[in-house]
Design a protein around this nucleic acid. Structure first.
Lengths: 190, 190
DNA sequence: GTCTATAATAGGATAGAC
DNA sequence: GTCTATCCTATTATAGAC
């Protein structure tokens, strides 16, 4: 005893899995089992308990979203290609529709717990990044914004429905079709 | 004591509210408070406990979905008008984006509880009804099906994102725009 | 059909040894 | 940094009176 069993980053990975699957209803038993750490050890990393674990997991998830999925959107180059790069990032992140969205899962259960602003920020950054590419692709600002919202709606909804239907295929189909639906007609083939 | 305080249908209404908000993580305390019935009285109506309450609530919700929201889609008349009638039904059902989707909320938490097929059936009926109208409006069967899926994705996703952002306006905007996006160009103005 | 009372279990969190 | 042991509360569920 004394030496870390796994790096804190790996602890966060495993906590994330549980929160994605169960939302804030995730129990300390589940979180303990997933990490291989006893309850008390989790409190060493997160003195604030479950609320702090959830907050840490969201903050990190938002950082990864920005660095690994939204980053391609902000680089120079063909907007259509960048959009397709984001779709590939999402396919990986959501394991082709088999994994839930952490932000979406944590919206359930209403009452205040102190990480609402992180959820809001995550969705906002995602929408803003997509809107920025669509504006660059030729859409007026307003149109780019609503199309970006629609894109995130479609992705989040596909995850919900595919979970409910027990079939992830429609999620993969959506990722394939989305760039063509979002871009102006003239740039689709680009 | 002995006489029913409220009709069973009203009990189901109130249970539904809680499950929509909290998913299956809803506690018996919450369900008891929402109905005004003690735990033991809930077990009188639902001997199978929480799982039976959830199952009853979904079955009834699916019936209402069919009768009050999908019914307009299956009547004769202009497809565009019928689609807009469904949007009005959804606006009511989801309280303009302020209320969550019961089916979506209950997809969280992974493990088997015996009502997965009701969730699946609810989504399937919804998609099939929309696809049927879109086919009638002129789309080939395959195209009608994928557009119907996309419609349900958008609605479910908008509910999730609006919950996360604390702003229901984008949901109302989506309901306004959807018919125009779903129908063939020639029929949009009809 | 509703209640009070109770049981048994699981939940979140803390103290303190090593 | 991890553990065992413990605390208190909440949870699900049942028994039985009225």
């Amino acid at each position: 005893m004394g030496a870390p069993l796994i790096p804190k980053d790996e602890v966060l990975n495993r906590l994330t899995r549980v929160f994605r699957e169960s939302g804030y209803a995730a129990s300390l038993s589940q979180l303990s089992e997933a990490t291989g750490l006893q309850r008390a050890s989790l409190y060493h990393y997160f003195p604030g308990g479950k609320a702090e674990m959830a907050a840490a997991v969201i903050e990190r998830s938002n950082r990864i979203l920005g660095e690994e999925i939204l980053a391609p959107l902000l680089e120079p180059g063909d907007p259509a290609k960048r959009l397709r790069a984001m779709m590939r990032g999402l396919d990986r992140y959501f394991d082709s529709g088999r994994e839930s969205c952490l932000l979406g899962s944590l919206t359930l259960g209403g009452s205040r717990r102190g990480f609402e602003e992180h959820i809001e920020a995550g969705f906002a950054a995602w929408i803003a990044a997509v809107a920025s590419v669509l504006a660059e692709a030729g859409w007026p600002r307003r149109e780019a914004r609503t199309r970006a919202e629609d894109a995130i709606f479609a992705i989040e909804g596909a995850l919900v429905v595919c979970r409910g239907m027990g079939d992830a295929a429609p999620f993969r189909r959506l990722l394939r079709d989305l760039p063509g639906h979002l871009l102006p007609a003239s740039t689709v083939a680009a």
